[in-house]
Design a protein around this nucleic acid. Structure first.
Lengths: 136, 136
DNA sequence: ATACAAATTTAAAATCGTTACAAATTTGTA
DNA sequence: TACAAATTTGTAACGATTTTAAATTTGTAT
């Protein structure tokens, strides 16, 4: 709690209870949750929470580089606590998004390219290891 | 017209007028259009066209490997005529999606990884060359 | 403490892309 | 020509996100 409060303050974001809880949730749940997952999980402990607040807060956290947004699925956005750049694997059977320990080798190359590069997203899609085993 | 009819037949898809037109549009317009762009453009020539038909047809074309879907933006899906694998650049200023002449170097590595890999998406985001010049 | 203005949160309504559904049309075949 | 199956169409439903305005909370000056 105090930890996330400090992070918000360091970014110049007013550390409200809702914001601290949302940032804390993302830091402790590295599952690339949807807005609804965040809302549903936190609503149990913060019954006055509004989904709009989740949207608003995520926007602020994004603008300040504290969370990243994944456009990996076709229906809704996924959020993750910002860490080292990495790629993602989406399983079309269980829907899970798995962090991959690979970085884009074009990062440096693109930096000196003709376009101004700001973000890189590497999305791999298929069937995850667990689902493969379960299906065998 | 005949060309796309043949492609559909080769895939075992009944080559209806609408399907031919949609496939032809995607082949001739490598702009990664949205469903609405496809619909609006074709509606001028096919006034009976329904947006549902565009959705249905794109699903069929996808299932048969004739078009790919990009989840690069945060609001809607983008479609492209299926060609060699490549990456994409999204300009946040003009919204244009540019084909990049880079392939994923992890393709082979991931093929022998623990997950079953079916698709790779490389999305680069920032400001495109043209917008940079315009803003200078 | 108290009052007030600004920021934040909330709930409800609106928006927009997509999907579901059922009726109308077209197609292929007997 | 008739009929069944496939396709197309338009409408309604759905769900994620955004907009809006009112209610609440916060910080500050008094």
């Amino acid at each position: 709690m105090e930890e996330y409060k400090k992070i918000l303050i360091a970014k110049g974001i007013k550390p409200t209870f809702q914001r601290i809880k949302i940032l804390e949730y993302l830091s402790r749940n590295r599952t690339h949750p949807t807005v609804d997952m965040i809302y549903t999980a936190l609503f149990k402990k913060v019954p006055t929470l509004s989904k709009t607040t989740v949207y608003n807060t995520l926007d602020i956290l994004r603008e300040n580089g504290l969370v990243d947004v994944l456009t990996i699925t076709e229906s809704e956005m996924r959020y993750e606590y910002c860490t080292e750049p990495h790629h993602h694997f989406l399983c079309r059977r269980c829907g899970r998004i798995i962090d991959l320990d690979v970085k884009c080798p074009y990062l440096e190359k693109m930096k000196f390219g003709e376009h101004k590069l700001e973000q890189i997203h590497g999305y791999f899609k298929g069937i995850c290891k667990d689902c493969l085993e379960e299906a065998q």
